[in-house]
């Protein structure tokens, strides 16, 4: 069994990517395509990609179905998968929280079960890389300015989107304890911004008038989407284990973000916004659930030194550059919020 997968031919790696149609999945497929260290890519999603390279094999598996675990295990064994990249997460909260739970928590369970089953075969899965977000720390008034990876995660009341991620991470943690031979990596992506990536902040900042919480001005770090993909590729290339915060350099207060972006900010008192946004969310008139208001009130920045030191990740864009880039591109293209539905990749 080859230990270091450098070179090509039989020693090159086989990578399985769940959620391969989403932003992260498709970006990673593009990058692996041009890398000789990777022999074969299993693109796992519910829909077939519209275009694919010669290394890519599309495997339709719906993670929300009960047989997903079996199907994945069979796929991993028959294709001799070395690395599983689990990216089937939502980028944005959806109204159908039950479905979100099925996809994110139960889906992760299926993937991990399949990896565990693939341990018994001749070639085993040696590495699992999972996507997460720095949102799992939660925005709290007693957060330090830079959260570190070892901070215990707590669930946030009424915030299923974040809680699903926390649960998925917990599962991976338990899995790692049970299977010490499998290298597990979690990438907690900071606040992503870019012309292609979706999320709460990109949607919010795509509007020309942005509501803010009156009197609160938390600091933000924005990670450019290409940097995020670079980090994902780095995590795949290297055998570093553990949890990594992937964040950009520099911080900006939210008020400065809005000013630099040329947005008109509407400060709304928190109690009012909580009520109104709860109402609007319930009637599906608003994309942002009321539990997200805390992310506009308190700090949730993360410390990226671990990724810098151990993964060698150095973001190309600073927070400010990312923001300006995003504003420029969204001014020229259509506003992301206006472009189609949530969850195009998951269904």
């Amino acid at each position: 069994m080859p230990e270091k997968q450098a070179g090509d031919g039989e020693s090159a790696q086989v990578v399985a990517i769940t959620g391969s149609l989403e932003f992260f999945g498709s970006g990673l497929v593009d990058r692996l395509e041009s890398d000789p260290r990777y022999r074969k890519i299993l693109a796992i999603d519910v829909r077939a990609p519209s275009a694919s390279g010669h290394k890519v094999t599309f495997c339709p598996v719906d993670l929300t179905t009960p047989e997903a675990g079996h199907e994945l295990a069979a796929l991993f064994r028959s294709n001799r998968v070395n690395t599983v990249v689990h990216l089937a997460f939502l980028s944005h909260p959806i109204h159908d929280t039950a479905y979100a739970h099925e996809l994110q928590v139960i889906g992760t369970m299926h993937v991990l079960n399949a990896v565990a089953a693939a341990q018994r075969g001749k070639t085993r899965v040696k590495k699992v890389v999972m996507l997460s977000s720095t949102m799992v720390y939660g925005a709290r008034p007693d957060n330090p300015n830079f959260l570190q990876e070892d901070r215990p995660l707590k669930k946030i009341p009424n915030c299923p989107f974040v809680n699903d991620l926390v649960e998925a991470e917990e599962q991976l943690h338990q899995f790692a304890n049970k299977h010490p031979k499998v290298n597990t990596t979690v990438l907690r992506m900071g606040c992503l911004l870019g012309p292609r990536v979706d999320g709460v902040l990109p949607r919010l900042l795509a509007c020309s008038t942005v509501p803010s919480v009156m009197g609160y001005d938390p600091l933000f770090q924005f990670l450019h989407e290409t940097d995020a993909l670079d980090a994902l590729k780095l995590a795949l290339d290297q055998d570093q284990e553990g949890i990594f915060n992937i964040v950009a350099e520099g911080v900006l207060p939210f008020s400065t973000v809005l000013r630099l972006g040329g947005k008109v900010s509407i400060p709304i008192p928190h109690f009012l916004w909580e009520k109104v946004s709860g109402f609007l969310w319930a009637f599906q008139a608003l994309d942002i659930p009321p539990s997200f208001l805390d992310f506009l009130r308190y700090l949730w920045m993360a410390d990226g030194t671990k990724a810098r030191r151990r993964l060698g990740f150095s973001p190309r864009f600073t927070t400010r550059e990312t923001l300006l880039e995003f504003v420029r591109s969204s001014r020229l293209s259509q506003a992301p919020a206006a472009s189609g539905t949530v969850m195009r990749s998951a269904r």
Partner: peptide, 30 residues
Amino acid sequence: MSKPVLGRDPFTQPVPTAAKPQKKTKTVKK
């Protein structure tokens, strides 16, 4: 998630390294 208007992501190949020769092996036209 992809934004249809932007097409295939131009930013996966960022501006400074845009010259990197990446073979587009797209068989199906978008």
